[in-house]
Simulated assay, not measured.
Amino acid sequence: MSTTTNENAQTWFITGISSGFGKEMAKQLLAAGNTVIGTVRKMDAIEDLQALYPDSLDAQILDVTDVEAIHRVVNEAFDRHGDIDAIVNNAGYGLFGAAEELSDDEVDHILDTNLLGSIQVIRTALPHLRKQGSGIIIQISSYGGQVAYPGNSMYHASKFGIEGFVEAVAQEVKPFGIRSLIVEPGGARTEFRYGSAHVAKLMPEYDGPTHSFLTMLDPANGLAPGDPAKMAARIIESSNKPETPLHLVLGSQALDNTIKRLEERLGEYRSETEIAKSTDIDE
């Protein structure tokens, strides 16, 4: 059992602490003497953390596709703990396959999980954060919220969508002392690639570049470069900076690819200056 104390201890609410960044963040925060309200779909996934931190880990069952459950779990967390310093949307997964290969259920489920689940967690927390006049919303996105690849259409839809939502909300709630941080990690050695990834029923017509994700998902072809523990540490550190960045890209490859795509996008828009002007009403 941990006996670590922290005079500046915080309380964090994190969805999806059974693996990946959620678990790494929970481990580091708990080891430093903080309190974590962590959600999972199955309690047996975090038996190790529960044994180590029975007093500072408040584990709750939550499926983020269940909106009524989100309202209940988030509201009860504030009722039990009072002020909560950070709300972290981490629960999510990857769905791979061409748009035509995906089933209706697969499309609905990834949007319910990655996009709508995150939106509802934030919306439920906002009245409490506004009342306490402080706190930070941390949205785990991906550099796939800025850069799109074939075979990832619905994953990108969920990440581009949640980034737009959080960017708008960040402006709405800044006057209340609420900060926002969108985390855009690159490839990391988590279960996202090597355990929880969902692959559609593939069609031979899309063999080639669209199915290149199969190479990425096979550990035999080399592991992702990102260290989940280091990434989790950078997220926690960034959340405590006086001037929190709105976007935090993690991984040198991810940053290079993001800058390249944004520069390409700027070039595309700048080339359209005259055609954009041509549609204005003549004064």
Rank of each mutant, 00 (worst) to 15 (best):
G151Y: 01
S153C: 05
S153M: 06
M154V: 13
M154T: 09
M154Y: 14
M154A: 02
Y155N: 07
Y155M: 09
Y155L: 07
H156M: 08
S158I: 14
S158D: 10
G161P: 13
E163N: 15
G164P: 14
G164W: 11
F165W: 05
A170L: 02
E172Y: 05
K174G: 01
P175C: 01
F176N: 03
I178F: 06
R179M: 04
S180A: 10
V183F: 07
G186M: 01
G186A: 04
G187Q: 14
A188Q: 06
R189A: 01
R189G: 03
T190S: 12
T190C: 14
F192M: 11
R193T: 04
S196Y: 09
H198T: 15
V199A: 05
V199T: 13
L202G: 05
E205F: 03
D207T: 13
G208R: 07
G208M: 06
H211T: 00
H211F: 08
F213T: 04
L217S: 02
P219K: 00
P219I: 00
A220T: 14
N221L: 14
A224P: 12
G226P: 03
D227F: 11
A229M: 09
K230C: 00
M231G: 15
A232K: 08
A232V: 10
A233F: 02
R234M: 14
R234W: 06
I236H: 00
I236S: 03
I236T: 01
I236D: 06
E237S: 14
N240S: 14
N240V: 00
K241S: 05
K241C: 01
P242Y: 08
E243Q: 13
E243W: 05
T244G: 01
